[in-house]
Design a protein around this nucleic acid. Structure first.
Lengths: 212, 212
DNA sequence: GTCTATATGTTGATAGAC
DNA sequence: GTCTATCAACATATAGAC
């Protein structure tokens, strides 16, 4: 923490205060990315100009271009981070051994945890539309992730551990639709902690809402 | 259907074929909106320029400005249509009388149906970020809708018809997170029809996935 | 109700001094 | 590694002819 950098509680450096004055900011790429991704999520990637990025970081546009080749590299680094974290969940030991329904439940829980831990990056990923090569590549990796999820649901059905009367691809989409929706409202300092969110999600989708 | 207008199966006039040539298009506002909203959803609202809008409609920018005051009016008309349709669900008789859990289930089913029927408009609504006055007003109406949903869940808990061990606001968010996620993949000509989607969603969230 | 032409601001990105 | 100054392209929107 040299230079007494002004960094907010969330670990995101505070915005725009020192442009052109005082000591140079000396951003690391990760620090810069955290600020920029927060801005992308607040205004939308397309609606955020490089001038907005510069203002948020407290640098000039030129200085931002010293760190990255352009706006798209910022997006690429952000969504790659999210995709790496999500794919890693599927490679965990508990995701690959044991009863299929337990593996599925584990992946649901861990997905919520990763979503919370990497919230800004996952949020940005979930909003990617496919306008650029970077975005298309991200959508491809997302689809690969979804295929691996669907295989997990299929395993649980084949093992007779979940009800067989539902289409597995449809169940996968709805189940992880609920998981992903957490990104729309979850806040680290909000009313609900990660364990409660994960427990409620599992209770809702594995146990069901209706009273016995 | 005068003038033998070229309109696709989805009711959306086909794009860009006649700019500057042949008979004037004579768009109604609703027809124009359908084309434009499809474009907004394909590229993202912010990433869609008025030039893109003009190309998609087969008009010039100037002609588009004859129909609407600007880009934001197009957004306003689209999200208002979605919000009107969603709020109407809560005012249906079956949403306001009978056992609370049945009212809740009815609203879930009808929300899926409205989402499918008004897919492009709801899709656009769900992506609104809050950058402009129009978007902020839309977010306000969405929040009001969510409040009414949460009250429905609370009613079902108070009536003892659903399990009491879950936080009602959290359940509301996850339940309708799953509902809204349908907009991300549902297609009218896709593998799953609306009744199957609604049945599966209700089975998943009210009955639960795990085998008894 | 459509067009061509244009006004005026903003965009992503670069040149080059310090 | 930051800055000032600038560019060409593209943005939203308008004027006015037909």
């Amino acid at each position: 923490m040299a230079y007494g950098r002004r960094v907010s509680e969330s670990g995101v450096r505070e915005a725009g205060a020192r442009r052109g004055r005082g000591r140079p900011a000396r951003y690391s790429l990760d620090e810069l990315l955290a600020v920029v991704v927060a801005e992308f999520n607040a205004r939308g990637y397309d609606a955020t100009s490089m001038e907005d990025v510069a203002r948020a970081t407290g640098l000039t546009k030129s200085s931002v271009y010293h760190h990255v080749s352009g706006k798209e590299e910022l997006l690429h680094r952000a969504v790659s981070r999210a995709l790496d974290a999500l794919h890693a969940v599927l490679d965990e030991p508990t995701s690959t051994s044991g009863p299929a329904v337990d593996r599925l439940e584990h992946v649901v829980r861990r997905s919520v945890e990763v979503l919370a831990a990497e919230l800004p990056y996952v949020t940005l990923l979930l909003r990617v539309r496919g306008n650029t090569p970077t975005e298309l590549a991200a959508l491809d990796r997302r689809r690969e992730f979804d295929r691996r999820l669907a295989a997990l649901v299929q395993d649980a059905i084949d093992a007779g551990e979940v009800r067989r009367d539902l289409d597995p691809r449809l169940v996968t989409r709805l189940l992880f639709g609920a998981v992903n929706s957490v990104a729309e409202w979850y806040r680290p300092d909000g009313a609900h902690g990660v364990p409660e969110v994960a427990d409620t999600l599992v209770a809702l989708t594995f146990g069901g809402l209706r009273r016995a």
